[in-house]
Deep mutational scan, measured.
Amino acid sequence: MIVFVRFNSSHGFPVEVDSDTSIFQLKEVVAKRQGVPADQLRVIFAGKELRNDWTVQNCDLDQQSIVHIVQRPWRKGQEMNATGGDDPRNAAGGCEREPQSLTRVDLSSSVLPGDSVGLAVILHTDSRKDSPPAGSPAGRSIYNSFYVYCKGPCQRVQPGKLRVQCSTCRQATLTLTQGPSCWDDVLIPNRMSGECQSPHCPGTSAEFFFKCGAHPTSDKETSVALHLIATNSRNITCITCTDVRSPVLVFQCNSRHVICLDCFHLYCVTRLNDRQFVHDPQLGYSLPCVAGCPNSLIKELHHFRILGEEQYNRYQQYGAEECVLQMGGVLCPRPGCGAGLLPEPDQRKVTCEGGNGLGCGFAFCRECKEAYHEGECSAVFEASGTTTQAYRVDERAAEQARWEAASKETIKKTTKPCPRCHVPVEKNGGCMHMKCPQPQCRLEWCWNCGCEWNRVCMGDHWFDV
Rank of each mutant, 00 (worst) to 15 (best):
L266V: 14
K27I: 04
K211F: 12
Q25V: 04
R275P: 02
D262E: 09
E16Q: 10
T217L: 08
D106C: 06
H68T: 04
G35D: 07
T410M: 11
K416Q: 09
V70W: 02
N356Q: 08
Q25H: 07
H433Q: 04
I122V: 14
G430F: 14
K32W: 10
I259D: 01
F45T: 05
A46R: 15
V43F: 04
A38Q: 05
A371K: 09
P133Q: 13
E96A: 10
I411Q: 13
I23E: 01
G329Q: 03
K151S: 14
N8A: 02
D280E: 11
S65H: 04
T177Y: 13
K349H: 07
C260M: 01
G340R: 06
D39A: 07
R305Y: 06
E404F: 08
C182N: 12
R348A: 08
N58W: 05
F7G: 03
N295R: 07
L107R: 14
V70N: 02
V425H: 07
I66F: 04
T177V: 10
E382Y: 11
S407Q: 09
V425R: 05
V164S: 07
N232H: 00
R392M: 10
A46T: 05
V67N: 00
K413P: 13
C154N: 00
L50H: 00
T410W: 09
F364Y: 05
L358T: 14
R97P: 12
Q400T: 13
L443S: 06
L228S: 05
N454Q: 05
P281E: 10
E404H: 09
R366G: 07
R128H: 11
V186Q: 01
D53A: 05
E426I: 10
K151G: 15
T21I: 04
C196R: 01
F208I: 06
K435S: 07
M327W: 06
Y285A: 03
G319M: 07
E49H: 02
V290R: 04
R72H: 14
C95S: 13
H422A: 07
K299I: 05
Q326G: 10
T125Q: 13
C418S: 02
D20M: 08
C212K: 00
F4R: 15
P137Y: 10
T177K: 15
F24I: 10
C418H: 02
T386E: 12
Y267Q: 03
C201A: 01
C182Y: 04
N52Y: 01
L107T: 15
E452A: 15
L174T: 06
D274R: 03
Q197I: 10
V324A: 10
C253L: 01
Q78E: 15
E195W: 08
D39L: 03
T387H: 12
F146E: 00
Y143M: 13
Q57M: 08
C201I: 01
R163V: 15
G429L: 11
H303G: 01
V3N: 03
N8Y: 02
G459N: 15
G340C: 06
D130G: 10
H227I: 07
V148I: 08
D274G: 04
G77R: 08
K48W: 00
G292N: 09
S223K: 03
C59E: 00
I188H: 09
V290T: 07
W447R: 07
D130I: 09
P37N: 10
D39W: 05
D262K: 04
Q276V: 07
R402N: 06
P439T: 09
L249E: 00
W447H: 05
L226C: 08
S19I: 05
R455T: 15
V5D: 04
H227E: 15
A206Q: 00
T388Y: 11
T222N: 11
G114Y: 10
G77S: 12
L325N: 04
V17F: 02
Q316L: 14
P88R: 09
V148C: 05
C377H: 04
C253D: 00
W74C: 13
T351D: 08
V17N: 00
Q71V: 05
R51I: 05
P159G: 05
D346S: 11
S167D: 07
A398V: 12
R420G: 14
G84I: 12
N448G: 10
G375P: 04
N428A: 15
L301R: 06
P199H: 07
D106A: 11
V36H: 02
L272D: 01
A406I: 12
D39G: 06
L41H: 01
T173K: 08
P14L: 02
Q326P: 03
A406K: 14
D346F: 12
W74I: 10
D394Q: 06
L50T: 00
L358W: 08
R51F: 09
I239V: 10
Q178P: 08
N90C: 11
C332S: 03
L341I: 13
P199R: 07
Q64V: 04
S127T: 12
C449H: 03
R51Y: 08
A206R: 00
P133S: 11
S19H: 10
P294A: 14
Q317I: 07
F146L: 04
V350T: 05
N190I: 04
F146Q: 02
G375I: 03
N313D: 07
C150S: 01
V36N: 00
Q276P: 00
R6H: 06
G357I: 13
A397W: 09
G284C: 02
C332M: 02
A390V: 11
C182R: 06
Q282I: 12
E409F: 09
R6P: 05
V5P: 03
S10E: 05
S101G: 11
D394T: 06
N144K: 09
R75E: 14
A230E: 03
F251D: 01
D87R: 09
R455L: 15
Q317T: 14
D464Y: 15
I2A: 10
I122G: 15
M458G: 15
G179Y: 06
D130C: 10
R271S: 14
D86P: 09
P419K: 04
E367G: 07
L228F: 05
T240V: 15
R104L: 08
E374K: 07
G85D: 14
E444D: 15
K161Y: 10
G459A: 15
E382T: 12
W183Q: 00
D87T: 11
V423Y: 13
S255E: 14
V15K: 00
V456D: 15
E96Q: 12
E300V: 05
S296Y: 06
N8P: 01
D106P: 11
A339T: 15
S127M: 11
S136I: 12
V3I: 15
C446G: 01
G213V: 06
E28I: 02
G328A: 04
E195M: 10
V36E: 02
P199A: 09
Q63I: 04
K416W: 07
H279L: 09
G47H: 03
C451L: 15
W183F: 06
S136L: 12
V111N: 14
L176V: 09
S110N: 11
R348W: 05
V250A: 03
R396H: 12
P288E: 08
Q440C: 11
G308I: 03
F463H: 00
G354M: 10
Q158W: 03
I2Y: 11
P335K: 04
G114A: 13
N81T: 14
T242R: 11
A82I: 12
V393G: 05
C418L: 01
A38M: 06
Q197F: 08
I236P: 00
F13T: 05
N428S: 13
S109E: 11
P343Y: 06
V5L: 04
Y147D: 01
H422M: 08
L228T: 02
S193Q: 12
A138V: 12
K413F: 15
N144W: 06
G35E: 05
V105G: 11
W54K: 07
A291R: 08
H279N: 10
D280H: 10
G139S: 13
Q171S: 11
G429E: 13
P132E: 14
S198T: 13
I142M: 12
R275S: 01
Q282H: 10
H461D: 01
A82K: 13
E395C: 09
H200I: 07
V465P: 15
L325R: 05
Q78N: 12
T55I: 10
T388L: 13
E404S: 10
L187W: 03
C449R: 01
V269R: 03
L228Q: 13
K299E: 08
F210Q: 00
S218I: 09
S246G: 03
A138K: 11
G450C: 04
A230G: 06
V224Q: 12
P335W: 12
V29G: 04
V15G: 00
S145N: 07
E370Q: 07
C332A: 03
G375L: 06
C451H: 15
L226F: 04
T414L: 09
P199C: 07
V269I: 08
R51H: 14
R334C: 04
M327S: 11
R191I: 07
N232I: 00
